[in-house]
């Protein structure tokens, strides 16, 4: 732990992320104004003591919207990461531990899911079920599955060639126990690093999906939905797009810095590029 805290970028990134997360959590119990409170006469107000970030085109308090939107963004991205980890990591571990046809199947499956960018999944689900925040979660979660499956398999393959895995097999451990006892603990750090990266990508993707109307729906709000609401008036009232936009950028930067710091702290040789999930 002390070793981790000696990396300044990790500390900065994590603390900034935590600040946003706390703001989001606070919105669950308290916001300056109720977010669904529409007050047309008080619309387009500039920032003031009563409304720290002003009001939007429906007279809603921007500060309250940003707080609630931040929470939605975190929630969607976190659940999507949980889906990715929950399904992808077991798949990747199984591929590495069993090998042969299991591995072939997992690889083909990940190849296949890579052909479905989050937008396409969201389009298909929305066509069927109508728009909702769940769509965004499922669409981003589906995209996360092959990402984590690949990371887990790649990491586990590197570990699986080490002799202690063979020693475990000699001791009569089956594939499942090998994966649980020897492979998983040694790839945890990889998964945590990938998790922060997918968190930040998930927040961007949620914003994109909500912006085109395939994600969060009113009266709920999210940072992407705020941008959608501002779309019609942004040429006259750019402030309405600046506030949620800058919030997204800051959260994503915080997560990315934390991720980079974590990667450096855990293994400086782990640097690699990451494809953008947003689409």
């Amino acid at each position: 732990m002390k070793r981790l805290l000696s990396h300044p970028s990790l500390v900065i990134g994590l603390s900034a992320t935590l600040v946003f997360l706390v703001v989001g959590i606070v919105s669950l119990i308290w916001t300056p104004y109720p977010i669904e409170q529409i007050d047309i006469p008080r619309r387009f107000l500039a920032p003031s003591a009563a409304h720290w970030l002003g009001t939007d085109n429906l007279g809603r308090d921007m500060m309250s919207l940003v707080m609630a939107g931040t929470w939605t963004s975190f929630l969607v991205a976190a659940v999507a990461v949980a889906i990715g980890v929950g399904v992808g990591v077991p798949l990747g571990l199984a591929a590495a531990a069993w090998g042969g046809p299991v591995e072939w199947l997992v690889l083909r499956l990940t190849d296949f899911v890579f052909a479905f960018p989050a937008v396409i999944v969201a389009i298909l689900i929305t066509t069927l079920l109508g728009p909702s925040a769940i769509n965004a979660i499922v669409a981003i979660g589906v995209f996360n599955i092959p990402v984590f499956a690949r990371v887990a398999r790649g990491g586990a393959l590197g570990v699986a060639t080490l002799d202690f895995v063979a020693a475990g097999r000699l001791a009569g451990l089956g594939n499942a126990l090998i994966a649980w006892r020897h492979l998983l603990p040694n790839i945890m750090s990889l998964i945590i690093v990938q998790g922060t990266i997918q968190m930040s990508l998930g927040i961007l993707a949620e914003a994109g999906l909500s912006y085109i109307g395939l994600g969060t729906q009113p009266p709920e709000t999210s940072l992407g939905l705020m941008l959608r609401d501002a779309q019609g008036v942004f040429l006259i009232h750019p402030w309405l797009t600046l506030v949620p936009g800058i919030s997204i950028v800051l959260i994503v930067i915080a997560l990315n810095i934390a991720g980079d710091g974590l990667r450096d702290a855990i293994d400086p040789r782990l640097r690699q590029g990451n494809p953008n999930v947003l689409a």
């Binding site: 002799d163 202690f164 001791a171």
Partner: peptide
């Protein structure tokens, strides 16, 4: 260097074959 799981104590590793 590769024959011990870095996440397990020596006792855990050495005792592993006793599962047999």
């Amino acid at each position: 260097f590769g024959s011990f799981n870095p996440r397990l104590s020596i006792a855990d590793s050495v005792a592993e074959p006793l599962r047999l």
